[in-house]
Structures are given as C-alpha cells and as structure tokens.
Amino acid sequence: MATVSAFGKGNLVRQFVIGVAALFLGLSTLPSAAQQARPVSIVALGDSLTAGYGLGPAEAFPVKLQAALRAKGHAVTVENAGVSGDTSSGGLDRLDWAVGEGVDAVIVELGANDALRGIDPAVTRRNIDQIVTRLKARGITVLLSGMVAPPNMGSTFGAAFNPIFPDLAVRHGVLFDPFFLDGVAGDAGLNLGDGMHPNARGVDVIVRRILPKVEELIAQVRSRRGG
C-alpha cells in the first residue's frame, strides 16, 4: 500500500482547506450575481400622461420607455400604473396595490390634474411627500418627475405649485426630472387635438429626454443590489 509522507499530508490538507474556502467564496457571490442579473422592475405611477390617453397600446410612455431601455442593453420591465384623470390624492390612495412587491423603482408622474383643477398646492405637496416617503420606506428607488402649473392658473397659484417637486426631490434626496412635458407642452405637432396630451411623436420626445435620468435610476438599483 502506498504511503503519504508528512509533507504530502500537509499539502493535501492545505489543498482541501483552499478548496473548501474557494467553494464558500463562490457560493457567497451567487446571490449578488443573481440579484444583479435579475431585470430591474420599474413602475410608472401617474395619470393620463403615463396611461397613454388617446394612444394605441404600443404608444404609451411606459411601453416606449421599456423598448428604448432594452435597445440600450438594459434588462428592465416598465409597468404602466397610469390612471387617466388621477390626481396626487388618487395616486396616494392606490399606491400600495399599484406598486406591488418586488418592484425596484418607481417613476412618480402626478400633479397635472391637481393644477388643472386648482387643487390647493399644499394638498398636492402633502400627497407627493407621502408617496415618496412610503416608497423609500419600502426600499424602492424613486425618480420624481415634476409638473408646471398652466399660466392661466395665475402667478399666485404657480408660485405655490411649481416649487413642490424640486423641493421634495431635495428633501428626500431622490432623482428629479424637472418637467415631464418639457419640449412637448405647447407644441401642436407633438400633442393630440386637445392640446394637452402628447401624441405618439410627443411620447418619443419625452422618452428621449428622460432616458438619461431613468438610466441613473437603474444604476442606483444595481448599486443597491451590489451592496
């Protein structure tokens, strides 16, 4: 029978220990790797601007945003949680079922109907504040998209309404998109006949403009997973 010298036994023990350590090290990296590989789940929480009012199913903002992100190599899903006519109060009321378990990030697009209806800006501020607070408490990364009051609401209303979104973005330390309709509002060629809702071309403009911010959103989710 072959024998193993003391030196040989020492080598075998060391190799065994190294092998076990490598195995555990490999196992410890599996959850992180799996987390990083899992597609980022984004919910677009909003009103008719998110829902795709007057557009075909493939023309709504969340659908086009998802396609644009995937074209750039991002593994993502973008769920449409837009409800036409919704105010910030409505968004707050349905928050828990509109943003289910397993969601990584939310684009908050609310406030247009608050402004059009002349709702007290203090109410809008309180609602958006609560929405962002509750999402962050769930560990969900947030991109807050701002809205601007229509000029016909008057300067006093605008002075109270317009700072809501930048103020809350700073307060909560979340990503901020200053104006969802930037580059689209007021352009007849980019809106439906009502002059308020973007047409398919208008949605394309919104998607191109907001895309870098959404990529930052995805990067924050990936960073959190990697941590």
Results as ranks from 00 to 15, higher is better:
1 M>K: 04
2 A>V: 13
3 T>F: 06
4 V>Y: 13
8 G>K: 11
11 N>S: 06
11 N>E: 10
12 L>T: 09
14 R>I: 03
15 Q>G: 07
16 F>M: 07
19 G>F: 11
20 V>N: 07
23 L>A: 09
23 L>G: 01
28 S>C: 08
29 T>F: 14
30 L>M: 04
30 L>N: 00
30 L>D: 03
31 P>I: 12
35 Q>R: 12
36 Q>V: 09
37 A>N: 04
43 V>R: 01
45 L>S: 06
47 D>M: 04
52 G>M: 06
57 P>H: 05
63 V>R: 15
66 Q>H: 05
67 A>V: 02
69 L>H: 08
69 L>R: 02
69 L>Q: 04
71 A>I: 00
77 T>W: 03
82 G>N: 05
86 D>C: 08
86 D>E: 15
91 G>K: 05
95 L>C: 07
97 W>T: 10
99 V>P: 04
100 G>F: 11
101 E>Y: 01
101 E>P: 01
102 G>Y: 12
106 V>I: 10
107 I>N: 08
107 I>G: 05
110 L>A: 06
117 R>N: 10
118 G>E: 03
119 I>E: 07
120 D>K: 09
123 V>R: 11
126 R>I: 02
127 N>D: 14
127 N>L: 05
128 I>A: 01
130 Q>G: 01
130 Q>V: 06
134 R>Q: 11
134 R>S: 01
139 G>S: 04
140 I>G: 01
146 G>Y: 12
146 G>L: 11
160 A>D: 13
164 I>F: 02
166 P>H: 00
169 A>K: 07
171 R>C: 02
172 H>K: 04
174 V>Q: 09
175 L>Y: 05
175 L>I: 02
177 D>I: 04
178 P>S: 02
181 L>N: 05
181 L>K: 02
187 D>Q: 14
188 A>C: 08
189 G>F: 10
189 G>R: 08
190 L>N: 03
199 N>W: 08
202 G>K: 15
203 V>C: 13
207 V>L: 15
207 V>I: 12
209 R>G: 15
209 R>Q: 13
211 L>K: 08
215 E>M: 12
216 E>I: 03
216 E>M: 09
217 L>E: 02
219 A>C: 04
222 R>T: 10
223 S>I: 06
